[in-house]
């Protein structure tokens, strides 16, 4: 007798309610997963940043601000500022490269558009590590660039590695694709009659570009800036492989605290510091884009 009753209630239950139950059921497992492995792990980082290291060298939870106070010294401050500088330089250079490339492909790519974008995407999604290594090989003292310079008699060799230029260059090489793609997407969507109209009104490609095209692709620009800045600020591979102790970034310090120095609470405080800076930026981005949405 139970089965028909169940059948009856199921038939009478409104369809939307049945569906909602199924969807809620589907959501439950992934939500639990993200809570367990992502959210709670972040909480642990925050908690441990107030923790301490026991006498036998193990990290332990506590409630003290020592780690944050330890961050407030010249060495770490310089490191933070350097990372910020590198990340900003990376964003600026990526912007200068990405806009023309995206522009040419979106507006002049014709039927090769997709092929060209794929030609950019494919190497970028292939191993970041190997691409950093490729630069290291190219720029090393006995690498291709230096031997070419020597053969041409231009120089006795230039030390590229261990410089800020090499590290920032590596970061740009690593992340410029995240600038190209959103700008490309918004240029793709751009109504070209806007450019025509701009040319009619402003008489000149340069003014049209800065007063019409760039503002119309603001969403892509903001997105690209964010997507490049985030990974660049947290990177440690570029500074590790292309730079040296003099070019280390926050990421290198975090990596040292966790994998070499074994001061996990201090490393956690550094991580929280980095996340705080990034969250401020995220919020600024969200506000900027939502203001823009309201304007439209």
């Amino acid at each position: 007798m139970a089965a028909p009753t169940a059948e009856a209630t199921r038939r009478t239950a409104p369809r939307s309610a049945q569906r909602t139950r199924l969807w809620a059921l589907l959501l439950a497992l992934p939500t639990a997963w993200m809570m367990t492995f992502f959210v709670s792990s972040m909480v642990i980082v925050v908690l441990l940043s107030f923790g301490r290291t026991t006498n036998d060298g193990f990290p332990a939870f506590a409630l003290r601000t020592d780690n944050y106070e330890a961050l407030w010294n010249d060495v770490y401050l310089e490191l933070f500022l350097r990372s910020l500088g590198y990340a900003l330089a990376t964003v600026a250079i990526s912007l200068l490269i990405a806009y023309p490339v995206a522009y040419v492909i979106a507006l002049h790519g014709g039927r090769y558009k997709n092929a060209l974008i794929a030609a950019i995407v494919v190497p970028f999604f292939a191993s970041y590590l190997i691409r950093m290594y490729a630069w290291k090989a190219l720029l090393s003292d006995d690498g291709l660039v230096n031997s070419a310079l020597r053969n041409l008699g231009l120089s006795d060799g230039i030390t590229f590695l261990n410089t800020s230029y090499a590290v920032v260059g590596g970061l740009v090489y690593g992340f410029v694709v995240f600038m190209i793609l959103p700008i490309y997407a918004s240029l793709e969507r751009l109504d070209t009659s806007l450019i025509e109209a701009g040319k009619d009104l402003y008489h000149g490609p340069v003014r049209t570009f800065f007063f019409v095209t760039v503002p119309a692709t603001r969403a892509g620009l903001y997105g690209g800036i964010l997507l490049v800045f985030l990974p660049a600020l947290g990177d440690f591979v570029s500074a590790q492989l292309l730079g040296g102790a003099g070019t280390f970034m926050v990421g290198n310090l975090v990596q040292q605290q966790f994998m070499e120095g074994q001061n996990w609470p201090l490393g956690s405080a550094l991580t929280v510091g980095m996340m705080t800076a990034l969250t401020v930026l995220m919020v600024a981005y969200l506000r900027a884009t939502s203001t823009q949405a309201r304007e439209l």
Binding site: P30, T31, L230
Partner: peptide, 27 residues
């Protein structure tokens, strides 16, 4: 809310996710 939480790993620097995972697993 759930949608936003699941997108967070995409905008979190990998080093942060990595460190957090290390702490969770050892914890």
């Amino acid at each position: 809310l759930i949608g936003a939480v699941t997108l967070l790993p995409l905008v979190t620097p990998e080093i942060v996710t990595g460190v957090a995972a290390l702490l969770l697993f050892t914890g």
